[in-house]
Write a protein that binds this DNA or RNA. Structure first.
Length: 478
RNA sequence: GGCGGCAUAGCCAAGUGGUAAGGCGACGGAUUGCAAAUCCGUUAUUCCCCGGUUCGAUCCCGGGUGCCGCCUCCA
C-alpha cells in the first residue's frame, strides 16, 4: 500500500509520488505572529508535523519549511487596505511592532516544542525575505502579470486564466460576491496587492517602487518557498481558510513567474471547533496551549485530542473531551508498562502475529491520507490483546518496537524508561517481601511511605508496577 | 448570491453496496489481603428525514432539514 493523499486541487485521494525520488519538498503555511497561537492553529500545524513524520517513516528525506509571517498581512489584504495586523497589535499593546513579532514568534516556537513538533529545516521570516519578494514582483511586471499604480503593485488576475482552479471560485462570481473592492486604481476588482507603499507604515523597505514600501501577504510564501525549496514543491499545506484567497494567489504568482507547476499536492486542515461552534474572542474560548497546561493537562493530551479525529473532518473541542483524551492516553501508558512486564517475563513464544497485524493496520491507516483515528484503533486493539495476556516475551518485545514506530508517527506516547532511585526501589522490594511473608500491615505502611514519595504501585501476577503520581515514568519490579 | 464540507450510540470518532472499528463513560458480574488495575458481559435494530437506483444502501443519485467553512480578519 502506498501513501494516499487527499489533494485539494483534484478534490480526491491520489497516490503520493515525489518529484525527486526519495526527497519531499514540503511548505507549510505558518502563523502570522500578531497574537498568541490558539489550539485551532495547532490543529493545522499538526497536520504538517504528522505529514513530516509519516513521510520520514516511509523512507523519504523531508525538506520541510514553515514560514513565519511577521509583516505585510493586512486586515484587508486583497483590497490592499486596512492596517498591518502586527502594527495594529503593536498599537494595542503600545509596543514596537518588531517587538510584537519577535515575542509572538518565540512563543509560537516554544508551543511547537512543547507539543513535540519535529523542527522543520527552517522557519523563514517574511521580513528577512523582502529582496526575494521584490525580485519576483519585478519579474511579474516584466512578464506582464503585474502592473504598477503609483508606488503600489498589483497582480493582474485576468492574466492568469487558471486563477480559481484550487478553490473552485470563478472570477465572475467573485465580482458579484459580498466583497466589493473599491480600489479604482486596480484593473480588476479581484487583483491583489504585491507591494504597497505607505509612509505611515512602521515596517517598511526601500525599493524601486519608492521609499516607504512593504510586501503584500501572498507574495511572501511564493518567494520563501522558492528560495528554500526551489520552484516546485511536492506538498503545500495550510488551514482550510487559506484555500482562498491565499493559496490561489500563491499559485498565480509562482506559476506566472516560473512557468512551472508550483505545488503538486495541496492539503488543508479543517478548522477545529470549540463547544460545538467556531471559537471566538467574544465567547472567550480561543484557548492557547497555556490554558490547557494551566488546567493541569500535558501538551501531549492536547496533541492526542487533535489527532483523535481525521484532519479533514470537523472536530470539536471541549474540556470534557480533553479529559476523556487524558484517560485514553493514560491507558496507553499503562499498556507500555504491561508490555515491559511481559517482555521481561518467561514463557513460550506466542502472539507475534497480533503485533504484525497491529502494525499492518496502523500503517494502512496512516497511508490512507493520515487516518489517525483508525491508526489509533490498531494500537488499542493490540493493547486489548496484551491485557488478555496473549503476548509472549518476544511478541511483547516486538510490540514495544511497534510502539516506538507509533510514537515516531504520532508523538503522543510516553516510552522513555525512568530509573527508580535506590531508596524507592528498596522500599518497593521491602514491601514485596512483607507481602510474601503475609505481613500486610508492614506492606501497607511501606506503600504509604511510597505514596508520600509520589509513587503509586500496582500488584499484578507478574510483579509490581510502579508509576509516579504525576503519570511520568513507571515500570515493573520483579 | 457563488463555491465547498459535514450529519454514525450518553460523549468523542472510524468505516463499508451485503447489514456498523476504536476510545471515553455507564451498568452487571469476576478477580484482588487491601488498593489500583485488569478480565467477562451489556450499552446504535430509522447509521438526520423523504424519495430513487439495486436482489440488497448507513455507504450511490435526487430533494429536504440542520450545522460548519470560504467568498470579508481568521489555522
Amino acid at each position: 500500500m502506498s501513501f494516499q493523499i487527499h489533494n485539494t486541487l483534484s478534490r480526491r485521494k491520489e497516490e503520493f509520488r515525489s518529484l525527486q525520488p526519495g526527497i519531499v519538498r514540503m511548505y507549510n503555511c505558518g502563523p502570522t505572529v500578531y497574537s498568541r497561537a490558539h489550539i485551532g492553529n495547532m490543529r493545522t500545524f499538526l497536520l504538517a508535523d504528522l505529514l513530516r513524520r509519516w513521510l520520514e517513516l516511509s523512507g523519504y528525506e523531508v525538506r520541510q519549511v514553515m514560514n513565519i509571517t511577521d509583516v505585510g498581512h493586512l486586515t484587508d489584504d486583497d483590497a490592499g487596505e486596512g492596517e498591518d495586523k502586527i502594527e495594529a497589535q503593536a498599537r494595542r499593546e503600545k509596543r514596537d511592532p518588531w517587538e510584537i513579532s519577535r515575542g509572538y514568534t518565540e512563543l509560537f516556537l516554544s508551543d511547537l516544542a512543547k507539543l513535540s513538533f519535529v523542527p522543520p529545516l527552517v522557519h523563514p521570516r517574511a521580513s528577512e525575505h523582502v529582496p526575494e519578494m521584490l525580485e519576483m514582483i519585478e519579474g511579474l511586471i516584466a512578464k506582464g502579470h503585474a502592473y504598477r499604480v503609483g508606488d503600489d503593485v498589483y497582480f493582474d488576475v485576468k492574466s492568469f486564466p487558471r486563477y480559481g482552479a484550487l478553490s473552485g471560485n470563478r472570477v465572475a462570481e467573485l465580482e458579484a460576491g459580498a466583497r466589493i473592492a473599491v480600489r479604482e486604481e486596480k484593473r480588476n476588482p479581484e487583483d491583489f496587492a504585491l507591494w504597497k507603499s505607505d509612509p505611515a507604515h512602521l515596517m517598511k523597505w526601500k525599493s524601486v517602487f519608492g521609499e516607504h514600501g512593504f510586501p503584500g501577504w501572498h507574495i511572501e510564501c511564493s518567494a520563501m518557498s522558492r528560495k528554500h525549496l526551489g520552484e516546485q514543491l511536492d506538498i503545500h499545506t495550510g488551514g482550510e481558510d487559506n484555500i482562498f484567497p491565499h493559496h490561489e494567489c500563491e499559485i498565480a504568482q509562482s506559476e506566472a513567474f516560473t512557468g512551472k507547476t508550483f505545488a503538486r499536492y495541496w492539503m488543508h486542515a479543517r478548522f477545529l471547533q470549540v463547544d460545538g461552534g467556531k471559537m471566538s474572542k467574544r465567547l472567550g474560548n480561543c484557548y492557547s496551549l497555556d490554558d490547557v497546561v494551566a488546567k493541569g493537562y500535558e501538551p501531549r493530551h492536547l496533541r492526542y485530542c487533535l489527532i483523535r479525529g481525521h484532519y479533514r473532518q470537523p472536530l470539536n473541542f471541549t474540556w470534557g473531551i480533553l479529559e476523556e483524551c487524558r484517560s485514553a492516553l493514560e491507558s496507553l501508558d499503562d499498556f507500555v508498562r504491561r508490555l515491559r512486564v511481559a517482555a521481561a517475563a518467561g514463557g513460550p513464544a506466542r502472539g507475534e502475529e497480533l503485533v504484525a497485524a497491529a502494525r499492518a493496520s496502523f500503517d494502512a491507516a496512516m497511508d490512507d491520507d493520515l487516518n489517525t483515528p483508525s491508526a489509533l484503533a490498531a494500537v488499542f486493539a493490540l493493547r486489548g490483546a496484551t491485557l488478555e495476556d496473549r503476548l509472549g516475551p518476544q511478541a511483547a518485545h516486538a510490540a514495544l518496537g511497534f510502539l516506538e514506530r507509533v510514537h515516531a508517527a504520532l508523538g503522543v506516547l510516553r516510552l522513555e524508561q525512568q530509573n527508580l532511585d535506590q531508596q524507592v526501589e528498596g522500599l518497593i522490594r521491602a514491601r514485596l517481601a512483607a507481602r510474601k511473608a503475609k505481613d500486610f500491615a508492614a506492606a501497607d505502611r511501606l506503600r504509604g511511605e511510597l505514596v508520600a514519595l509520589g509513587i503509586a504501585l500496582e500488584d499484578t501476577p507478574r510483579g509490581v508496577l510502579w508509576k509516579r503520581a504525576d503519570g511520568t515514568g513507571g515500570g515493573p519490579i520483579q
